[in-house]
Write a protein that binds this DNA or RNA. Structure first.
Lengths: 122, 122
DNA sequence: TTATCATTTGAGCAACTGTTCAGGAGTTCA
DNA sequence: TGAACTCCTGAACAGTTGCTCAAATGATAA
C-alpha cells in the first residue's frame, strides 16, 4: 500500500516504465474495476448462472418455473434473484400471484452467449 | 431438494410445463453452469479484473509491472495470477528473472471488452 | 372471512475467498 | 561463491458468500 506515485522499481533489465504509464492511462480505474468485478461476480455462481441461462432461453419465467428448472430451493432462488434484480441484471413483472423474471440487459445477454461459446467451441 | 423428476407444481394459472421442459432441453447442464460460473467467478474480483484489463491494454507485462499498475502487494498479484494461469485465462513466459504474463484466451478478451462497453456506454 | 398459493425476507451458520506474513526457489551478476 | 532481485508457495486469519430455516407478505379462491 501507500504507493501513490511510486514509479521507481523494476527498471533493472528493460525500462518498461513507459509501457506501465501508457497502460495506466488507458486502464480501467480502480473504481471501474470494482464495478466490472461486481458484474462478473454476480454471474460467477452456479445457481445464478443457471437462472440467467434459463431466462436467456425461455425469455421469461416465474419463480416456481425457475425453481423447477434449476434444482435448488425456492428461497435460494429468491435470494439469488434479488441480487440480480438489485444489480439491474434481471427485471420482474407481477401477474396474479406469480412474478415473472426476464433478462434486463442486452450486454449481459451477450456476455452469457459469448461465454457459452467459449465453453462449447473454445 | 429431492426434486429429481418433479414436474407437478405451478400449473394453477398457466400450463408452463411445456415451456419449462423446452427450456430444460436447450439449457446449459448443471455441470456446464458450474464451469461457466467458474469462469465468471475468476473475473469477479477487483484485483484480478484490473490485472486482466492491464494485460488487455499492454499485451504483455511482468509481475513487477503488474504490481505497480494494480496497487496491491506482489504476493497478492502472484496468488491472483496463479488462479488465472491454472484456469488457462492467462499464460506466462520467462525472460531472465522476470515472468511476463499475457491473456491466453480470445473469448475472455472479448468478454472483457464487452463488459467494459457495458460499463461505459450501457 | 379463512385457506391456500407464490414469493419474499431476515437470521444464523458452514464453507469459501483474498489478503498478509514468513520463507523458499530460480536467475543474474560481481 | 554469495548477494541481490523477481517471483512463487503455504499457512493463517478476517471478511464474505450462499444456503437453510422459520416467519411474513401479497394475491387469489372458497
Amino acid at each position: 500500500m501507500e504507493v501513490v506515485a511510486g514509479l521507481d522499481a523494476c527498471t533493472t533489465v528493460e525500462p518498461d516504465e513507459a509501457k506501465v504509464a501508457a497502460t495506466r492511462d488507458r486502464l480501467v480505474t480502480a473504481e471501474e474495476a470494482v464495478r466490472l468485478a461486481e458484474l462478473f461476480r454476480l454471474l460467477g455462481d452456479p445457481t445464478r448462472a443457471q437462472l440467467l441461462y434459463a431466462l436467456l432461453e425461455a425469455g421469461e419465467l416465474c419463480v416456481c418455473d425457475l425453481t423447477e428448472t434449476v434444482e435448488v430451493s425456492d428461497t435460494a432462488v429468491s435470494h439469488a434473484l434479488r441480487l440480480l434484480r438489485t444489480a439491474g441484471i434481471v427485471a420482474s413483472r407481477r401477474s396474479g400471484r406469480m412474478i415473472y423474471y426476464r433478462l434486463a440487459d442486452a450486454h449481459v445477454r451477450m456476455l452469457l452467449d459469448l461465454s457459452r461459446e467459449h465453453l462449447r467451441h473454445g
